[in-house]
């Protein structure tokens, strides 16, 4: 693809791989991923921060990639849905989404999963109400909300079991 406007250098690590590319400053992180790096797992549902489909982790924190200029986060570590599985092994959250039928069309799903993974890190998982509130930045038009909650609770339960196992 030919870049046609004035470009700036953009240096990132994406899913552990270094990425250096010259792009116009108007390119968002989301469009960089989808249009220039062919990482289409991160979805565009509104392009205005209003739906959460584009959620990725930047330096471990969940953010909406549609509202970030790619050039404005130099050297950041970006994790997308493609970087979540390791060595062909699904992340427990991905498995839980499958088990709990936590999606239908699947379009909000990568964003929901990335958000849920960050939610676990943040620890906002004490009650179903708390999970609901802290997942509310991810809309799902198919209405898979119950399944998503169940998936998150499945992972919480697994973690608790694992911890209990370690302690024993």
């Amino acid at each position: 693809m030919t870049d046609v406007s004035v470009t700036s250098p953009c240096r990132l690590r994406i899913n552990g791989e270094p990425c250096t590319i010259d792009i116009p400053p108007s390119v968002t992180l989301l469009d960089l991923l989808r249009e220039r790096l062919d990482l289409t797992g991160t979805k565009k549902g509104c392009d205005h921060g209003q739906c959460g489909a584009c959620t990725v982790l930047v330096n471990g924190k969940r953010v909406k990639s549609c509202l970030i200029l790619a050039v404005s986060i130099p050297d950041a570590e970006v994790t997308t849905i493609e970087g979540l599985s390791r060595d062909g092994q699904m992340h427990p959250m991905q498995q839980a989404f499958l088990d709990q039928d936590a999606f239908q069309c699947g379009y909000c799903t990568p964003g929901q999963i990335m958000s849920a993974v960050a939610l676990m890190e943040e620890g906002h998982v004490h009650t179903r109400e708390e999970i609901r509130e802290f997942m509310s930045g991810n809309l799902c038009r198919c209405g898979a909300y119950n399944g998503i909650l169940d998936a998150i609770e499945q992972v919480i339960a697994q973690q608790q079991q694992d911890r209990a196992g370690e302690a024993a």
Binding site: R34, E35, D38, L39, T40, G41, T42, K43, K44, T80, I81, E82, L84, S85, M90, Q94, Q95, F97, L98, D99, D101, F103, G106, Y107, T109, P110, I113
Partner: peptide, 21 residues
């Protein structure tokens, strides 16, 4: 039965209309 298209969807491999390039 769990969705057989689920793996593609939860891993971001499923391609939607705006995604072939």
């Amino acid at each position: 039965v769990s969705r057989i298209d689920g793996l593609a969807k939860v891993t971001g491999q499923a391609r939607y209309a705006a995604e072939p390039h």
